[in-house]
Design a protein around this nucleic acid. Structure first.
Lengths: 349, 349
DNA sequence: TGTTAGCACTCGCCTTGTTAGAGTGCTAAT
DNA sequence: ATTAGCACTCTAACAAGGCGAGTGCTAACA
């Protein structure tokens, strides 16, 4: 059932050739271009066997062979060798990816830009998912008679704050009390959990002033949690696919573009994918059945997890793209390691 | 030189027909569909004259006529009548556009969504430009030994704040002094102005502790200003154009898509456009020579100005689109009027 | 003088037919 | 097991002919 050495060689040759030229490859051109020491006729026989096994397909009788999803899967799993980035690409990345915790979103977006620029495919990047983040403490700070600042500090060091204008004045005592009260109630719980359960919650409200203040603060508190949980999606290089022959038909191009029209759906799908470099090819995807999707994860302080990804036709340079993505995510994770105050300041948008 | 009444009627008929069917319209079909009381031959003669004057063009000898940019311009300027929104559209807008100052970005995005949904074209929305915003005061609030919050309050009521981690501890006195110091220096000046001129500025730094604190705070201050000045661009319905015959060629579709690849360029262009409902047709645009671009402005507290817009082929329902945009922007401006605290809280992202 | 009917003419599009080329699959020889 | 040879298949490209929509012109008409 296993493929012979020669079959593997031929399959690899076909994949190489097809990835390069995007045209069905015939037995003759394989024999000419790759020195396998056999004649086209022999290659034809092997090709026929490979087709029977599902590794190749045939657009029509008198056309060359095209690798199937199964072939790419085999290639990615066993045939493919890790590729070293070119010096040029490395330089490009090091120059442009001035990652810093202060400029989270900008850094992530740059990563996506680089990804699409180097691969000539469509790329995306997600800011880290914070649904695992837990609350360390909550503080309410006075500004003026009617204005306060709500500050939510996460256990991984995230700090988010919001200005709130209250309907009624407040007292410093009530403010302090509510801060403590909220901290006690929510400390150690995830943002997600707090947001979902807040309705049935019953934070002690025996004191009159406190109860009133709490009523004013809660809507803003919940909205801020929601905003913290939001994951931003950046897409780059959408129009790159217009240069690829597989999208020369308007229908294909439209289908591709429409995938990204529903950003929320797309974001959810991406968040569900496993960690590390993950490749799904053609039919392995629920939608986008003739695309390959490659995602990789980066880490923030080794904890929070964000994703970057590349989308293109199944015909792509798997070795180069996966190596690039590994390099990029390592780079990002390194930059996003908590340097503990030495960078002077920190901000979470 | 002016067009006769009959010529105007014929031109209007041609525009109607062409906007509807996207096909060159012939003299016979005009005579049949519109009751002008003249024969096709007469219409042919008039068409010939209109063509000579530049209002119509001719794809080839034996095809019907197509309105030129000049014809659309005439239509928009003088022929077009204001259209009432359909009850269905009005309901849609009122249901979905729950505008509120608290959810600025979300509201803007919804507006763009509605716009593309109703017109079946591509739409966009820009968050308000804040380069005219002036600083009311600046305050630094203590959090813990190493952490402070920087708060920038604009004169139109915007409040933005950022958490900053300092390299060295600070004293309450230094904090208060620097707050006052910065407020005095920057009060009444626009964000833009402060950001651009900060280098040559010389805020008094005779006191040692103050100087050190200031050194830590300034980078974050400038970054925050920059972020406040950022205008967000939301695009919706990009794939709508795939349903239009003018974009059935892959090249056209690509050109269209690539317009929006450089978001920064696009944003700048849109910000430069005049206020109110502005229509630019075909050649009147620098790039996108066969598109029509319609923008409209909404106001925040009657002061800050944001934009929404629609992009499509020159063949579009000008009357409906412009009426819709007027309705939408009025609606937005109304919702964004400062209600002075009665909505409980306020936030600027 | 403006309007209309009639008719020849133009031109793009669709269909059909033909050809060249690439590549396979089979068979028989090695 | 491998290979050369050859018939066969299918597509892409090009050419020719017919169709139909629409114009432009001319001559007749109110």
């Amino acid at each position: 059932m296993d493929l012979s050495e020669r079959q593997l060689q031929i399959l690899q040759a076909i994949i190489n050739d097809y990835v390069e030229n995007a045209e069905p490859v015939g037995s003759r051109s394989i024999a000419k271009r790759y020195d396998l020491g056999v004649s086209p006729a022999t290659i034809r026989n092997e090709m026929s066997d490979l087709e029977e096994m599902g590794y190749l397909t045939h657009p029509h009788t008198s056309a060359g062979r095209v690798p199937s999803d199964k072939a790419y899967r085999l290639y990615v799993n066993t045939l493919m060798k890790k590729k070293n980035l070119s010096a040029k690409d490395k330089r490009l990345i090091n120059d442009r990816l001035q990652a810093s915790r202060d400029e989270f979103d900008a850094t992530i977006r740059h990563a996506a830009e680089l990804l699409s620029e180097i691969t000539h495919l469509t790329s995306f990047a997600l800011t880290p998912a914070t649904n695992e983040e837990t609350i360390a403490f909550i503080r309410l700070l006075p500004v003026d008679e009617r204005t306060i600042i709500l500050m939510i500090v996460g256990e991984s060091g995230n700090i988010t704050n919001t200005t709130m204008r209250l309907k009624v004045p407040y007292t410093q005592d009530a403010l302090d009390l509510l801060s403590k009260n909220m901290t006690v109630t929510y400390k150690g719980r995830t943002l997600d959990d707090v947001l979902k359960s807040h309705i049935i919650e019953d934070v002690g409200t025996d004191i009159e002033a406190l109860s009133s203040l709490r009523g004013s603060v809660m809507p803003g508190f919940l909205r801020t949690l929601e905003e913290m949980l939001n994951v931003n999606l950046y897409m780059e290089g959408m129009t790159n696919i217009f240069n690829l022959p597989e999208y020369s038909s308007i229908d294909r191009a439209r289908d591709f573009m429409q995938l990204f029209a529903q950003k929320d759906w797309f974001t959810q799908k991406m968040l569900q994918r496993a960690d590390g470099v993950v490749v799904t090819i053609g039919d392995e995807n629920t939608k986008m059945k003739d695309c390959t999707l490659i995602t990789a994860t980066y880490h923030v302080d080794g904890k929070l997890v964000g994703k970057i990804g590349v989308i293109g036709p199944t015909r792509m340079k798997y070795d180069e793209v996966t190596s690039l993505m590994e390099y990029l995510t390592n780079n990002l994770s390194e930059s996003f390691r908590l340097t503990d105050g030495t960078d002077g300041e920190e901000k979470k948008e």
